[in-house]
Amino acid sequence: MLGFFDQNTLLLMIALPLLLLVVSHIFNGVAVCSTMTNLVASVGVYTLSALQGIGKITFFAASGIKSCFAPPFYFRSTINQIIVIGFYSLPIVGLTALFAGMVLAMQMHVGFTRFNAEGSIASVVVISMTRELGPVFAGLMVAGRMSSSIAAELGSMRVSEQIDALVTLHVDPLKFLVAPRIVAGVLTLPLLVFVADVIGVLGGMIVSTTLLNFSVGSYVVQTISNLELMDVLSGLAKAAAFGFSIACFGCYHGFNSELGARGVGESATTAVVSSCICILGLNYLLTAVFFGI
């Protein structure tokens, strides 16, 4: 506990409420007391609400995972989702990676020139792309594109009672709607990230060879010699986790969409925001796990 808070902070945390209580007691301050009660109550309400939300989505994710491994399996629906999530996201992910690699090479050149390390541009570009930029940019782009789309689609199915209709036709909505999206997300994001890595490195090479006087041969040699298998694998593992979170948040918010057009719109927005935040948080967590920091 003391590792997280220093001594002064802890003292302040204990002393401040006590001080407020004493002040309210001395001045018989009903207003102060009530303000503090309200403050504590609202903190409590938000905390409980947040915990409830986390609990609900964890339970939903666990049910989603379970439904991926239990028959019946909807292969056609899964293939459709792989095409929608993976194939149709290729252009936007490719473009993002291309520009990210190009900008990275330029910025590295500017920075490295200050201490005569221009020769390391290729290494930095490939390591940055495979470890961080490829997975995160691809994840964020797919989250923006697909999380909202999944939430809106399932939300409108909820509003128009199509999900209820599935139940009455003896179909488990989790197996029919959620499982194919989770499988598609987990399978296609690593493939997209692999493509993004290659295109990003290519972008860096284009800038380095056309503007920064690198030769293609030396750039490629430097890229390959400094790349480790773990760099690529960690990025792909991250991508699988991001794919899962995109599908999960999209489905969860779609399933729990409020009725009406506004409710569907809100669920789409919330799905994008929450999956983007989850991607950034997971990225930090997985980086710490993979590289032992």
Binding site: S160, E161, D164, A165, V167, T168, H170
Partner: peptide, 19 residues
């Protein structure tokens, strides 16, 4: 539940046909 739900079929207010 499986046997229970198999007994029913419903015509929804908004039809609920799959788009």
């Amino acid at each position: 539940h499986r046997d229970y739900i198999r007994k029913f079929s419903i015509l929804f207010q908004g039809n609920a046909l799959f788009d």
